[in-house]
Simulated scan of single mutants.
Amino acid sequence: MAAPQPINVEDLDIHYGDFLAVQGVDVQIRPRSVTALIGPSGCGKSTFLRTLNRMHEVIPGAYATGRVEINGEDIYDPKVDPVNVRRRVGMVFQKANPFPTMSIRDNVLAGVKLNNRRISRAAADELMERALRGANLWNEVKDRLDKPGMGLSGGQQQRLCIARTIAVEPEVVLMDEPCSALDPISTLAIEDLIHELKQEYTIVIVTHNMQQASRVSDRTGFFNIAGTGKPGHLIEIDDTDTIFTNPSNTQTEDYISGRFG
């Protein structure tokens, strides 16, 4: 299996119709590591995150220009199928979203079935167990796999969604504030899981919690916006320790020290 390559983003502009939401992002995201994105509300962090698997295009009128290269392929090449991009680049959302009518088992396998993969019952059970173990959830649910996923606690539901994401064996996992609705114990469980997942996946996480960014990430990028109606910009990205102790840009320092945001 070839070694994973960085995600290369070049001259990326993100639009919602006539509105330029994010401008001029150039960044390289290291493979098999955790990159956190921080910054004030409305600065484009989540918008940028959704361009990494073309989810922003689901919004009418939204589009991006520039280049996003994942494992050597520009995902915005006209020949590239966005559905295939979303299989390779999984997404975990802010609010846990198990499918309400499905069992725990069927929730985990939903993405696999949506991708029209024909799979035997034995192979499906093996894949489901592997994904649940990967999400640190197997021991908690192994005796109730046919019960509804919605019957789990909030933190367990979020880990179920992570299991569903990794079951399709993506290369990259995007997380949009995955702990914002969780209690501290569940948050710790997700953070511990992120540390384990980076052994196999490239992870990009948006968080409003700077302490969380400092705990879970290897590198941190700071987004900011000059004012209402202006586009967001990636101000700087560096090793997390450097961003939090010796940032190169005064905007970053002002945000981290609490002067705004």
Results as ranks from 00 to 15, higher is better:
59 I>S: 15
21 A>K: 06
47 T>S: 02
16 Y>G: 05
205 I>C: 12
257 S>Y: 14
146 D>Y: 04
66 G>R: 03
175 M>V: 10
70 I>M: 08
222 F>G: 09
205 I>Y: 04
209 N>D: 13
11 D>F: 09
86 R>A: 05
238 D>N: 14
179 C>G: 12
220 T>C: 13
111 G>M: 01
231 P>S: 00
163 A>H: 12
206 V>T: 03
40 P>T: 07
62 A>T: 02
132 L>W: 04
94 Q>S: 10
158 Q>D: 12
148 P>Q: 09
202 T>L: 02
55 M>F: 10
105 R>L: 15
29 I>A: 08
226 A>Q: 13
136 N>V: 07
44 G>F: 05
207 T>E: 02
195 H>S: 08
25 V>E: 00
137 L>C: 03
79 K>C: 08
246 N>R: 14
12 L>T: 01
142 K>D: 06
102 M>V: 09
53 N>F: 15
11 D>P: 11
213 A>E: 06
222 F>T: 11
105 R>F: 15
41 S>M: 10
82 P>G: 02
216 V>G: 03
247 P>Q: 07
28 Q>L: 14
156 Q>R: 14
234 L>W: 02
205 I>F: 11
244 F>D: 05
24 G>N: 13
231 P>N: 02
23 Q>L: 11
52 L>A: 02
234 L>F: 01
90 G>H: 02
189 A>W: 08
78 P>R: 02
39 G>R: 04
8 N>F: 09
84 N>M: 10
36 A>D: 06
44 G>S: 03
172 V>N: 02
152 L>P: 00
197 L>R: 00
166 I>G: 07
60 P>I: 07
257 S>M: 15
27 V>A: 08
242 T>F: 10
38 I>L: 09
185 I>M: 13
160 L>A: 04
150 M>G: 11
260 F>R: 05
168 V>E: 03
171 E>Y: 12
92 V>I: 15
6 P>C: 03
215 R>I: 11
149 G>R: 06
157 Q>K: 12
101 T>Y: 14
122 A>H: 14
39 G>E: 05
190 I>N: 01
248 S>I: 15
8 N>S: 07
109 L>R: 00
138 W>T: 00
47 T>D: 01
131 A>E: 07
49 L>F: 00
129 E>Q: 08
233 H>L: 08
96 A>F: 13
157 Q>C: 11
57 E>K: 13
94 Q>L: 12
50 R>F: 07
154 G>I: 12
158 Q>P: 11
209 N>K: 05
192 D>C: 14
173 V>E: 05
84 N>E: 11
92 V>P: 07
176 D>P: 14
112 V>F: 01
122 A>R: 15
93 F>L: 15
34 V>I: 14
182 L>R: 00
15 H>L: 11
117 R>A: 01
115 N>H: 04
175 M>S: 10
42 G>I: 04
86 R>N: 03
41 S>N: 08
144 R>V: 08
150 M>Y: 11
7 I>Q: 00
18 D>Q: 10
171 E>N: 08
105 R>E: 15
226 A>R: 12
121 R>I: 03
243 I>W: 06
128 M>V: 02
52 L>E: 01
212 Q>S: 04
235 I>T: 00
37 L>S: 05
